[in-house]
Write a protein that binds this DNA or RNA. Structure first.
Length: 173
DNA sequence: CGACTTTGACCCGCGC
DNA sequence: GCGCGGGTCAAAGTCG
């Protein structure tokens, strides 16, 4: 882990950021699954924004209801687009009830501190991208949450983080 | 010394 | 049925 990132992330929530560029949150089909897909984009900061608020809200409220006051302060812009799953309860939704939440964040490091501890368990090269994709699991005892991190194909300064499942616990302790 | 990364192999679903 | 792409396992290595 990186202490510098952690400290930055922790202290970031106290600052006030206003120069927030919101570069056209495009939900491409690549990561638009048939499940719930939400997207967070933004941060003119290269890294160190506070994702724990976002993550906490998502993990507690299951991605549709996102009215967390903290998230506004952190400039996390959320587009809760349940578009794909709105009229698509054909086949997948009956089998897979796992919620899937995708973030697209501007960052130069892919391991962002969201308040949880992650254990990497895999790395793969993806076909449509020159960048690898990393697979993480929550390292807390019997927590089923998985996380997938990859870089944007044509904008490597963006990182796409996909959470899957919800935590059993409040934090990493 | 324990917890975590790394990395190739294995597995599985899907399209041809 | 086979090959490919994506996801996971697990043994060995690394780090604190």
């Amino acid at each position: 882990m990186n202490d510098a990132e952690t400290n930055l992330a922790r202290s970031f929530s106290d600052e006030t950021h206003s120069g927030f560029e919101f570069p056209e949150l495009d939900l491409s089909d690549e990561w638009m699954d048939d499940d719930l897909v939400s997207a967070v984009s933004g941060m003119n900061q290269s890294y160190g924004y506070q994702t724990s608020d976002v993550a906490a809200a998502l993990f507690s409220g299951s991605s549709s209801s996102f009215s967390h006051p903290e998230s506004q302060r952190t400039n996390a812009s959320v587009a809760a687009t349940a578009t794909a799953s709105a009229n698509n309860q054909n086949k997948k939704e009956q089998k897979k009830v796992k919620e899937r939440v995708a973030f697209k964040t501007r960052s130069e490091v892919e391991v962002l501190d969201d308040g949880f501890k992650w254990r990497k368990y895999g790395k793969k090269m993806v076909k449509n991208s020159p960048h690898p994709r990393n697979y993480y699991k929550c390292s807390v005892d019997s927590c089923p949450v998985k996380k997938r991190v990859e870089r944007d194909r044509d904008d490597p300064s963006f990182v796409i983080t996909t959470y899957e499942g919800s935590h059993n616990h409040s934090s990493m302790n």
